[in-house]
Design a protein around this nucleic acid. Sequence first.
DNA 1: ATATTTTAAGACAAAAGAGTCTCAAAAACC
DNA 2: GGTTTTTGAGACTCTTTTGTCTTAAAATAT
Lengths: 153, 153
Amino acid sequence: MLLSKSCVYGLRAALFLANQEEGKFVPIRHMSDKLEISFHFLTKILQQLTAEGILESFKGPNGGVRLVKKGNEIPLIEIVMAIDGPQLLTECALGLPGCGVQNPCPLHDKWAETRDSIRDMLENSTLTELVHKGKQENLRLTSESGFDILFND
Amino acid sequence: MLLSKSCVYGLRAALFLANQEEGKFVPIRHMSDKLEISFHFLTKILQQLTAEGILESFKGPNGGVRLVKKGNEIPLIEIVMAIDGPQLLTECALGLPGCGVQNPCPLHDKWAETRDSIRDMLENSTLTELVHKGKQENLRLTSESGFDILFND
DNA sequence: ATATTTTAAGACAAAAGAGTCTCAAAAACC
DNA sequence: GGTTTTTGAGACTCTTTTGTCTTAAAATAT
């Protein structure tokens, strides 16, 4: 698996937030319902994103979480780094510690190329970009429903 | 993590075998010592490769395992598919079941591209190719030693 | 103040991945 | 036949990931 489940849930939630009215706090319970993710689990994941400064949270009635920056300023890589850490883009494909240009494994060069294309994808896709694409084509954010679920309450 | 640890160990062992005299059975104990992988764990992994028809095994003195095909006929993807299965190259990046051209998630197109570049790398690198590269430049197959460990007994 | 709504924190449980161990089965050698 | 060397199969343990639950703390409203 490329991304952990936590990371995937974090990405889905971030896309959800990027589709909301800017600056509005959205309750995690609402997101967990819409995105079909366990409330407590999602809470834990979003706490990480809050700790990393990607989200802001507010307690109490009308509280919730929201993006600190605008969605078009947040590439996917930020979410991935915050949750899964840099391993995906730094680790040796053969698992050898300290593999790098100086002391490579036989796969190093080829893997470095592939890794760069993963990095590029994650750096060059912003939340807003994917939300627009998703809305235009009514693509899916859950196993069943498309982006429209984010509106019909 | 892109590949599971089992898969990485399987790849290292396959490279080791591709560097041995063709047709010779190599005891797993010998490989586990050289590659610094737990004997029992490596045994279990290589049993999978045997079950998948990538290795042949032979019991008793002078027994061991060997590659069924020549190393230059075995791309890395064969080992990866045998151990980790096709998930890496089929699964949706957002974890949505049934994501595909018909019913894509917002990341589908970009991820499909990236995934293709991973597939290409794994399809276009053969064991022999990496062994040659490794021998020429004395690259590493373990955390400490280079390819020369495969010779010095 | 008290009750309600929300996130925060952390204990706990279940499942999957990684790794160890034991015993059986096959082959070779004596 | 018995001993040794090897893989095969499976039970078992440890660790990490995933997921659940409980309680606390902050904010709001009445």
